[in-house]
């Protein structure tokens, strides 16, 4: 199966986001693909939004089975989350468990006015009642297939897939 070129998908996503991104918006990326995606959208749309990053390792529901993720990165929300409109970015939406963890994590910073979700690919396979508000591509992939967003040293984004 061929994976699409991510830049076209980011263009499509940016077009959906353009009307809703105000200066009081907070754009929060989930480490690490979500942060890259957010930065690519900002590159296209510009603007002066508030920026934050989340690592959901401490909120994952598989800690008892899998332990800590190898490279936990600090979460960074350098502004008041209370009353803020948040757009959360992740590269691939699959089971919905990462998004659940990210929402829990965000609420430990405060009570946002709203949270909306922007993803590059919605690949189906949800195990929780989570849906994206902005989507670059909606396409089912086989359960045994793993999809990842990568970024090169030069900052080029690409999509790769393979067995888990």
């Amino acid at each position: 199966m061929m994976l699409p070129e991510p830049n076209a998908l980011i263009d499509a996503l940016a077009a959906q986001l353009a009307p809703v991104m105000g200066t009081d918006c907070a754009l929060i990326g989930i480490h690490t693909g979500g942060v890259w995606l957010r930065d690519a959208v900002i590159q296209r749309l510009g603007g002066k939004c508030l920026l934050g990053e989340l690592d959901v390792s401490f909120y994952r529901d598989d800690f008892a089975q899998a332990g800590l993720h190898a490279e936990v990165q600090p979460s960074r929300i350098p502004f008041e989350i209370e009353g803020r409109s948040v757009i959360l970015f992740d590269d691939v939406l699959y089971t919905g468990r990462t998004v659940r963890a990210a929402i829990n994590l965000l609420f430990d910073y405060g009570r946002p006015a709203s949270i909306r979700l922007a993803v590059l690919i919605d690949r189906g396979g949800r195990e929780l009642p989570v849906c994206a508000d902005f989507t670059g591509l909606r396409q089912d992939f086989p359960a045994h297939e793993h999809i990842d967003l990568l970024r090169s040293e030069a900052g080029e984004l690409s999509l790769v897939h393979g067995p888990w």
Partner: peptide, 23 residues
């Protein structure tokens, strides 16, 4: 190094209003 890197992420937890994580 893994302990020190992980601790770095926990420092940011200590700077929040809610200083707890559910691990």
């Amino acid at each position: 190094t893994e302990v020190l890197d992980t601790a770095q992420s926990f420092v940011s937890v200590g700077e929040r209003d809610v200083k707890k994580v559910p691990l």
